[in-house]
Each structure stands twice: as structure tokens, then as C-alpha cells.
Design a protein around this nucleic acid. Structure first.
Lengths: 202, 202
DNA sequence: CGAACCATGTAACTAGTTACATGATTCG
DNA sequence: CGAATCATGTAACTAGTTACATGGTTCG
């Protein structure tokens, strides 16, 4: 897996401690990178050191011991070989998508609208951060990063546009037509109602 | 985790076997749902049955034994309680984003363009499938599903638009400005070149 | 009649999280 | 002076994949 490569990538920006890496991911995890816990960062850093991809620059700064990790020549090489191979297709795990697909007319659609509104807020927050990012006066953003961030921006904006559209069609009950060749919508409602009735009788 | 809930969700459409569930996810995994292997489906189904959320309808069809699973009243209840709680913010793991953010001028940008082109092709394929989906003459698509699928469509279209833009700016070397307050771009290239030089001398 | 598909399942492994332990420093 | 932050680390657990074993059926 490429968690190791992600660590090498972060270390390529500048030598960092395990703690730094975690913080770096904390705010960037915003729909772009993925998070990592200490429980996987520290053991992985040690493993990468044992294998000769990184080495430690022990530091005693204000009495605070810290282990800065830096890439070895072998580490640079490994990182760049990874950069050259074609990236895997992204994995998206979106519960909202799953829940919406499973929704039916016996459920209160205002709940679903609530989910959408909450998502809109979260997405808006991240979008705000992403828009500031390349000119926030603190972060390092290379021109390539800036291009990648632009992608995040476009994606988030598209999401907000869709959410607004979705809330609107749910409120006006103007949902798109689906495809129901076997009368599944009815079958589902029947199966559900029967199961619930059984439950009540019990 | 909500893998269990995802299984309940799929079973709510119609009673299915473990094999059916896997196939269902195979083609829908297209950037919308997430995949699952037999190694996690079968043990999970058994667990759900033990806990009383689903039950088996044993079938002997053409000498082929199969175990159809169906939701119990408790299963319907559990599913719907899950539908009502606010969905977690989606997790996206996109290596392309990571690789682009780590790119620098000592690497051949035509490789990165290659990555983008490949991604464009894959996304285009999925988009083709997604567009057909609600009217392909086979799939069951409720009106709520149709709305969710519309989201996938918008997202994929936005991605393609961005890829074209990105390829263009890379080819014309017209990348957006970043933010480099500490001369990091230079520092990175210096660290890298030094490491590579060390390696050659060895 | 063999390849592809339908169908179920497990053992060994890989990956990762959660929660805790520890201890120093900084800041309101 | 206590809370927040900096900093490292581990043990127990949860989740999930890969690869294999098994055996029947359908279709070219």
C-alpha cells in the first residue's frame, strides 16, 4: 500500500517529525488527502528507517527531544519511482450516496434534506479553507500543488451546486425518473410494511 | 463501521446471495460505492444472521444450492435507524492528487500528463456507464437513486473538465502561482540533487 | 469438453484505529 | 497553575484483503 509512499512524499517537502506529519495531514485531510493516526505513523517511520529509506536527525530543541526524519538517497529514489507509476483510481466512500440510494417513500424526506444541508455546510467549510490555502500567508504551495488544489475547489463547488439542486427537487417533489422494470419500488415497500407489521404483532 | 449497514441496504432492494452482493458492487463500485471481497461479505452475513438482522431462505435452484438472505423486522429497523443518522463526511483517497502535489521541476512533466490522460480515460468510461445507468433496460433505479447518480455524473464531468484544463496548463507551462514564502521549491530541489549526487559517488 | 460463470467459504495475512501511557513546554 | 500543545510510543483490537479450496452448471 502507498501509506509508506505518502510518508516519503510528506518528508520530501522538508524533514519532519511524526507529530508534524500528523498535523500536516490534519488540515489537508479536507477531502484531498487521507488521515493517519499515530498508531500507524510511528511504526511505519521506524520500518522505513530500518529499510533505509529515511534516517533520523535527532534534535534537542528547548529541552524537547524530537526525531526529525529525512529522506536518504534510496528514499528519494523510491519516492520518485512511485511518482512515475500510474496512480490507482481513487476510492470514494460516501455514505450519503448509499443512504440516498436506499431511501424510499415511507421515510420522511425532510430527514434526507437535513443530511444534505449538513453536508452542504461541511463542504462549504472545506471549500473556504481550500480557496484560501494557496494564499493564506503560511502554507507552502508549489505550482503543482496549486493545480491539484484547483481540482479540489472545482469538485467541492460542483458538490454544492448539486446539493442545492437536490434539496430543491426533494422539496418540490420533482425527483428525476428512475427505472423500475419489475415494480421493485412497490415490492420494497410491501416487504418493509409486512416486516414492520409482523414486528408489531409480536 | 457501516459495512454491515451497506449489506443491509443492498438486501433491502431484494433478497440476495453473497455472490449477488459482490456482483452488485462490482459495477456500481464505479466511484460511488466501495468494493467488498468475499472474505468480508460471507463472514459478515453470518454475523448479521447470528445477531438476528437477516435470515436465510435456502434455495435449491437447478441443483445449485444457494443461500438467499432477507432482512428480518429487526434488520429493517436497524437499516432505517442508520438511514436517519447523519452520514459521515466522505473519505477520498486519490493518489493522483498526492502525486501531483509532490511533483517538482526536476521530474518530466510529460509523465504527469500521462497520468492525467489515463485518468481521463478511466473517468470517461465510468461516466459513460453512469449516464446509461438509469435507462439501461436492466438496472433497478429508484427516483432517489437517480438523484444520487446525477451527483456522480456531475462530479465526473467536473473532473474531466479539470483534467483537460490541467493537461493544457502543463503543456503550455502556464501553471497557477503557488505560495513559497521560505524558498521551499529551491530547498527541495537542492536536497534532492544533493542526495542523488551522494548516491552516484558511492 | 473445457472455459467461464455461479456459489460458498476459510486461513493467513496486511493494514489501520483506538485508547492509553508518558513527559516536557508554553500560554492565558 | 492548569489547560493546551508538542512529542513519542505501544498493546489490543477491528477491519479487510488475498489466495486458496471446493464443487456444481452453462455455454460455445
Amino acid at each position: 500500500m502507498s501509506v509508506e509512499h505518502t510518508l516519503l512524499a510528506v518528508l520530501s517537502y522538508w524533514p519532519s517529525t511524526g507529530y508534524d506529519i500528523k498535523s500536516e495531514f490534519e488540515h489537508k485531510a479536507a477531502s484531498l488527502y487521507w488521515g493517519m493516526s499515530y498508531g500507524s505513523i510511528y511504526p511505519k517511520l521506524r520500518k522505513l528507517e530500518e529499510e533505509g529509506f529515511i534516517f533520523t536527525l535527532d534534535q534537542e530543541e528547548d529541552g524537547r527531544r524530537k526525531k526529525l526524519y529525512e529522506l536518504t538517497p534510496k528514499g528519494w529514489e523510491e519516492l520518485e519511482n512511485w511518482l512515475l507509476i500510474s496512480p490507482a483510481y481513487p476510492v470514494v466512500k460516501d455514505e450519503l450516496f448509499m443512504k440516498m440510494s436506499t431511501w424510499h417513500d415511507d421515510l420522511d424526506s425532510t430527514i434526507l434534506i437535513g443530511h444534505l444541508r449538513k453536508r452542504r455546510g461541511e463542504t462549504e467549510d472545506i471549500l473556504g479553507f481550500v480557496k484560501e490555502w494557496p494564499s493564506n500567508g503560511i502554507s507552502f504551495v508549489s505550482k503543482f500543488s496549486a493545480l491539484a488544489i484547483r481540482f479540489a475547489e472545482i469538485r467541492l463547488e460542483a458538490e454544492i451546486k448539486w446539493i442545492d439542486e437536490a434539496i430543491h427537487v426533494l422539496q418540490t417533489n420533482d425527483l428525476p425518473e428512475g427505472q423500475d422494470l419489475n415494480g421493485n419500488v412497490d415490492k420494497i415497500l410491501t416487504r418493509r410494511r409486512k416486516a414492520i407489521k409482523e414486528n408489531k404483532e409480536k
